[in-house]
Amino acid sequence: MGLATLDFPQYHGGVAVASYEAPRVIELDFEVFGDTTAQTLTLLEDLFAVFQPQVTVEQPLVFTLPGQPERQVDCRPRLGDAPLVTPAIHRHGVASFQLVASDPAIYSSAERQAVVTPTVASGGLTYDVIYPKVYGAAGVGGTVNVPNAGQWETWPRFVITGPTSGTFTDPTIEYLTGGQALRFNAFGGIAISAGQELLIDSSPRHRSVTLDGASRIGRLSEDSEWFAFQPGINEVRLRGFGTFDGVSMTITARDAWI
């Protein structure tokens, strides 16, 4: 039995493997001043109530740097130092907290939104050769550009709204910039009726596909590939079958930095 050559470097250096960023750790230091020592202690207790350690629940920490719009990090308190209160004459307290963000990216607080309608097939072209030969139908419309003004990838959310009547079936979201697609045509596919919305969250940390609250992630085809928006312009197209009138897809994403 031989060893696979892929297990060894084929040239100088190492083997290129996936490399992931570590969680982001944030340190917060507070100074508290009260009119009395008792008030200072109360203010410190309020701070510790806000920054109680959390095991899994992460919340957005919103901040602003000089000359920049609001940004945020999704994080949770991990550790808290014991409060230090200086002598009563100073009425001064100090507290420190450590927060951890499982997702190290920094996001814009403001979300970008874009709306696109499905690509509608046109009639195609017919050429008279030895026999009438019809070439495949081209698509009309159905694409939209979504910018990511940051310098790190960001995971979008999609909401596909059903038609005014009838059903829109087997939707496909094509990421033309990267060549990936999400095709919902497995195990009977998906049919979106009037008044229904298909909600798709692509984030690896809380990925989901729901229709009227019921999971439909199992309808994703095997050749589908989840994608993140890269820095710059991201072109997306919506395809499907059935009724197109009234169908739209809303794309929501934030700019991202690392």
Rank of each mutant, 00 (worst) to 15 (best):
F187M: 09
I190P: 04
Y175L: 01
A191K: 02
A186P: 00
I217K: 01
G188Q: 14
D212S: 15
R205V: 04
E197P: 00
I192Y: 01
S193N: 11
L199K: 08
R216T: 02
S193R: 10
L211A: 05
Q196T: 03
L220K: 03
I200F: 06
H206K: 14
E197V: 04
S208M: 10
A214Q: 09
L198G: 02
S215H: 05
S215R: 02
G188T: 14
I217R: 04
Y175K: 00
A214G: 03
L199T: 05
G179M: 11
G188L: 11
R219V: 04
H206Y: 10
A186D: 14
I190D: 11
Q196W: 01
T210C: 00
A214F: 07
S193V: 08
Q180F: 03
L176P: 07
S203A: 15
G179D: 04
L176G: 06
R183T: 14
D212K: 07
L176W: 02
R205W: 12
E197H: 10
S208V: 05
L176I: 13
S215G: 04
G188V: 07
S221P: 01
S202Y: 05
Y175E: 01
D201Y: 07
R207W: 13
R207A: 15
R219P: 00
H206P: 00
R216K: 15
R205N: 15
G189W: 02
G218T: 03
A214V: 11
R207C: 08
T210V: 12
D201K: 06
L211S: 03
